[in-house]
Design a protein around this nucleic acid. Sequence first.
RNA 1: AGCGGGGUAGGGUAGCCUGGUAGCCCGCGGGGCUCAUAACCCCGAGGUCGGUGGUUCAAAUCCACCCCCCGCUACCA
Length: 573
Amino acid sequence: MARWVVTSAWPYVNNVPHLGNLIGSILSADVFARYLRLRGEDVVFVSGSDEHGTPIEIEAIRRGVEPKQLTDQAHEYVSKLIQEYRISFDNYTRTESPVHKSFVQEFMTKLYQNGYIFEQDDVLPYCPRDGMFLPDRFVVGTCPYCGFEKAYGDQCDNCGRLLHPSELKNPRCAICGGPVEFRKSRHWFFDIPKLQEKLLRWLQESRLPPNVKNYSMNWVKEGLKPRSVTRDNKWGIPAPFPGAENKTIYVWFEALLGYVSATKEYGIKEKGDEEFWKRYWFDSKTRTVYFIGKDNIPFHAIILPAMFIASGDPYVLPWYISSTEYLMYEGEQFSKSRRWGIWIDEALELLPADYWRFALIKMRPETKDTNFTWNEFTRIVNSDMNDDIGNFAHRVLKFIKSRFGNKVPEPSEMKKLDKEYLDYILSAPSRVGSYIESFRFKQALEEVVELARKGNQYLNAKAPWEKIKTDPQDAATTMYIAANAVAKLAVLLAPFTPDAAERLWKMLNMEGSVHEPGRWLEASKPLLNPGHVLGEPEPLFRKLPNDFPEKAHELLAEARKRVMEKRPPLLRW
RNA sequence: AGCGGGGUAGGGUAGCCUGGUAGCCCGCGGGGCUCAUAACCCCGAGGUCGGUGGUUCAAAUCCACCCCCCGCUACCA
């Protein structure tokens, strides 16, 4: 049995995550982690709030508070939401965690000692009024090529040209609007070009998916440049290099290390073992799996492995990186400034987590950007989830209750149709599982829906409501198989809709929890024996009204108002 | 501009790697059933697979060029 570390990209908590963030990393990672546990695998599932860096520092300035006050509120709120979505993190921590901070400092010191860090002066934009150096993105001015007056220091949104902030005419601070100067500042750089050959060889031999692999190999082949690992921000982890007393570590470098430090923190808190994390990260048989959005590929496929190699410690390099495309909202990208989209707290005001989990997984942008529309959402919830799965379970359980005294009937002779469907049920866990293992969650869930669809066909073909009068033994056989299909559904749904799966498990009057380790493996044989007394059947899901798509925008607007009162003050718009 | 991903019936998607005249879901039209949540089942209509050219007995699938959408391009995270 392999050890697994499953990670999800760390939400940047200048804001509440939206549905795109949820499906892109957190929810996808949860489905995978839950599946592995159901298979009885040894899993650590970690993530945390990414809370350092300029955007948060600026947000804090804007609100007149210290950054820590902002991220304290954000971390607490996001942690609570993550629980409400039933994301089964073993540790959801934060980059302000003391374990993380000291881990990052020790790690960066190793890179320094191993000769992978060098110093160099840079000339950088500086705002004298705010008293801070500005990232390129936070300098605005007139584009020297097209004359657009609101070009950013890294790129002009009008003509698309890539820029350097020093090229802008009339450069101003994006925060206060004041003039920008250029000042010299000393920085510490990660000498990543030294690792070019090793990275290329690793990428070549890795089993990363083609989109990640090809993309990254091109990057590396084009030639890597040293990257500065320090920033002049006050808000962050102090750089441990001699002479770097006023610098902090660039958020990207430390946030990536959070995967390791979160495992370490978990070991200390839950196992009382300082060295626990090494059993995972330093074991060549451990499989580390990262769930990220497509914008994050270089950091996970190049920079993180480079850091691991440069540390000189025997870290396992990424085993798999599952990168999703983007979820769009009604045709356009989610946008905080335009308030376009659905944020995860708003969603819960409308419907319980299972509805979102199910629909989002069915919309998971696995090969291309996918559009969230209320029409499609309603279709998935009403048709796939409720009519196919929910109603199938209900019709089976109700029938057994009314005609068989709520006991699983004793099967007799199996005919062709019976054998076919029984085989189909018994092979479903391995079918669904193999899709999950190839990171095709959308198809995996479709396969679960298909089990219910086939069940409906089976019932209609066998018409036990008719046979009960003419051939009761055949009706009993049919319902024995159908009941087992429902039990199977409970297990197969467990990674996707954990609450509904558990409710169904209880309705079947099964022992313990559906989420117990190893359930998936048990499900390769019938779960219900003849004579087993079932529980009280009730509808598993409810349906959305037909006019839901038309009313959704209005409902969302109302939800947004309610949410604003629940959000901690520093996260309100 | 360079690199990567995508463009398949009204909507959503599979198939493409490993060529053999297109599969599934929703919607639509017709029929059936009555165990079930106005649910379920069956039948049917609807696609020259972004465009052009090429390779081949045969192209959604391979090659070339072009058009459109999305992302990245190293200091937003």
